[in-house]
Nucleic acid binder design. Structure first.
Lengths: 343, 343
DNA sequence: ATGAAAGCGCTAACAT
DNA sequence: ATGTTAGCGCTTTCAT
């Protein structure tokens, strides 16, 4: 023990000195798994002892700079409050951990500004791979990112939005179509409302198309007042439902573009003493945990975030390890209607 | 335009060559805010043009290695599904962004292993500051981290747990005491149950002490069956409530250690056709958004995560900038009972 | 006002 | 089997 406390991290150099070998020998010992070179057992022993004694830990920042490899991936999610993304993040983290990667989580709150900021951050502080759920980023912006950095990117998005990138997606257009069709054919509804989100958010137009498709096919006309717009939040779902129920002839069923808004919609109906599902049926989208907590339990189109996270992580690591080939990878994760009590 | 596409990030060297100056001049131009040195307007102009032309972005990994400053902080939260932490993270991110820091979010799911892994990751890839919500980390482990890295750490924890560290905390012991006292004195309950968490989780023993204190003061004996244990989740709250309600003489009120379990508890009561609050009153802890979605709306002890995040971030940046002095900083964020419909 | 050079902590090519 | 050397891209002396 020296008279001074250890003030700072020991470096490889310190270890080398203490072990009486060169710094590169220390490096070799510490990465003997990857290095093909043989080192004498005594040297290994000495080095390991010195490492132990100094409580040495490699500095990954230095290793990154040198090796152009960070052992770190980043994931950009659209809303940290949306349980969908929690499952995705958990799965991704588990897979990353198996391969000894750290995961940097970033949250954009659906804001364009934050999405761009994320790209900037990645350009300036590169990682080995990026997973993202882009809402506003243009194809051009994303191409800039990938061309500038050459970092593999996998997106959770509709396949046509980013034609160059590996993509995982849930087929929400078809799922919406089928859910609404079921509302019409099986449940006998003719007056169906729609609570969507701004067309600037990707799922907005897609789910809207699925909705229109089912109604057109059934030769049902929907009055414009039946289309309400929210912003993914519970509060906006409440507002939209209140608007719908205050109509002279309110819908008997409402398709809501995500569960959070559907929860708000049911809440608003209850407040107005409109019974769900007797007077108005509600279908959500996502299948978050809250769907089984509220009463009536929410009928919803389930997405499978664990599968999504798994496919995204797999696709990304395949790219990182260069086993993907030139072809773009696209994975569809199917959605399924889960009937509960709100319909 | 050269015949080849730009294959990779331009470096400072490339900029220097294009501008016909030395690399260090480029560095000076780009950090002229911090550098005291004067540079001729023409040079600045030339450099800026080259930067523009090459679409140059500084490599922050290199800057970190050289400057021992990363412009990045890390935050470790205990559960990405707990809305409490979403608010904390959002606030921290907003403050960090103002100062041009990136935020690395890590999630431990209350797992000791993940908490230790986080410390390892920070030791090996240092950042400028750390915010954390430790559940299992010992004082020794945390001291190791701070001594080894000299990185400022601010924790959200009971002040006595980590006596050396800057600390932010909600006074949940007193808040629990007061809520239970209110249940007794104002609401007239005498048979009160308790749904807690394992004593190995910090809030467990504290809230239990507050509970015991109020009952002892009122000279009420609580039978051992009235104490149930969950694990923070909705499902565990359901189980605990079912156990309580199946007792020969069930409690007329239950204090639940967090809102998620309280939501589960109310759900279980409803399933058993036990009316809330007429037959059993429920009080939660945290004041998450779900408290106003469920029916009856949940009476709960509110914590103020935005204030917590703000104080944590402030304390951290004060340390990073060295304006804190030697004294340890401790901030209490008060909690308040919010009466709704479940009591 | 600018350039040359050192070096942050590490890996890997090149010696021996 | 081990040491020497050259960088990764940047900031910061130290010269001039």
């Amino acid at each position: 023990m020296s008279s001074k406390m250890i003030r700072t991290q020991a470096t490889m150099h310190d270890v080398a000195r203490l072990a009486g070998v060169s710094q590169s020998t220390v490096s070799r010992v510490l990465s003997r798994s990857t290095s093909p070179i043989q080192i004498s057992p005594e040297t290994v022993q000495k080095v390991l002892e010195a490492v132990e004694k100094l409580n040495y830990r490699p500095n990954l920042t230095a290793r990154s700079l040198r090796g152009q490899k960070t052992n770190m991936i980043a994931i950009m999610i659209a809303d940290i409050s949306n349980p969908m993304y929690h499952s995705i993040v958990r799965t991704v983290q588990a897979i990353a951990r198996e391969r000894d990667y750290d995961v940097l989580i970033a949250n954009t709150d659906h804001l364009y500004d934050y999405e761009r900021h994320f790209c900037e951050a990645i350009i300036r502080r590169p990682v080995d791979g990026v997973l993202m759920v882009p809402y506003h980023l243009t194809n051009t912006e994303l191409e800039q990112l990938t061309h500038l950095t050459r970092i593999p990117v996998v997106v959770l998005a509709w396949p046509s939005y980013y034609p160059q990138l590996d993509t995982v997606y849930g087929d929400d257009l078809k799922a919406t179509y089928e859910a609404v069709k079921w509302l019409i054919e099986v449940k006998g509804h003719r007056r169906i409302g729609f609570i969507g989100v701004s067309a600037t958010f990707p799922p907005g137009p897609r789910r809207r198309v699925g909705f229109d498709w089912a109604l057109t096919e059934a030769l049902i006309d929907v009055p414009p007042e039946y289309f309400q717009e929210g912003d993914f939040t519970i509060e906006s779902g409440q507002r939209a439902m209140r608007a719908l129920l205050s109509l002279p002839q309110p819908p008997t069923a409402v398709f809501v573009c995500n569960d959070l808004m559907a929860v708000g919609a049911i809440d608003a109906a209850k407040d107005l003493r409109v019974r769900v599902p007797e007077e108005v049926a509600v279908v959500g989208f996502d299948n978050i945990p809250a769907t089984t907590i509220i009463r009536p339990r929410l009928t919803t189109v389930a997405q499978y975030p664990n599968e999504m996270g798994q496919q995204m992580a797999r696709a990304l690591f395949d790219r990182i390890e260069g086993v993907s080939g030139d072809e773009r990878q696209v994975f569809e994760i199917p959605c399924h209607l889960i009937e509960r009590e709100s319909t």
